[in-house]
Amino acid sequence: MSRSAAVLSFWILLALVAPWLGLSADAIHLDKILAGPGMDAWLGYDDLGRDLLARLLAGAGVSLTVAGCVTVVTFILGTLVGLIAGYHGGWLDRLLMQITEVFLAFPGILLAIAFAAVLGPGVGNLILALCLTSWVGYARLARGQALALANRQHVLAAQVLGASTMRILIKHVLPLLAAPLLVEATFSIASLIIAEASLSFLGLGIQPPHASWGAMLRDGVRYLLVASHYVLVVGGSLMSLVLAVNLLGDKLRDTLDVKDRNF
């Protein structure tokens, strides 16, 4: 197993077993506020005297769950939109791609911020805001591939044999574009982990008392001068997870021989 996969598995495993480790993410110790790492709490305490390790693990669970849920939903939705557009062609393709272009006209996570702002905070709205903005990558990729595959011999043969459009798309087109979509999904998980943390950092995502790496970083910045361990621990964890997912994506891209996206 590669190092990146090991780091990712480490975080997933920790997030999964966290409830059985006997750590309480919400227990407040007023005498330990912002205390540094020690034997009783390996990573120290936060601004309310809560165990940072417990909150970090709870935050990892939230981060991975949100990224996982959004990836599954947008993968299905985006791929479906792209496949239909690319295979159907004509006005439907133009319409769907025009909608995709509009979504792509908003840079970075700006649109997710806007959606999260109007929908209101909370994990449900956070997932909805990220779903509304993250499907476009899959749609564009699937559409491009479907366009190229629509006139392949085996697809034409299936058409002549009377196979339905849905059957052709799922059985004859989708398997051929699984590799690039899988690579896209891996990179998307990394972007979503950052996006979730960004929105929570801005106060638009996970709300207290629930733990979230973004919200923890926001609180940590306030106490940068007196408790730098707070920011360093949370930021370092976030970076290790994102780096691991990105490296895994790179590896997957090389293994599956998918053409490079941008670099």
Binding site: V221, L225, L238, L243, L247
Partner: peptide, 22 residues
């Protein structure tokens, strides 16, 4: 490049603040 690309602004910012300002 890989490390920098995995550092979101809300983590890198405080880090730079910590080193160069504090």
């Amino acid at each position: 490049a890989l490390t920098l690309s995995a550092m979101p602004h809300f983590w890198l910012g405080p880090l730079l603040m910590l080193v160069f300002a504090l």
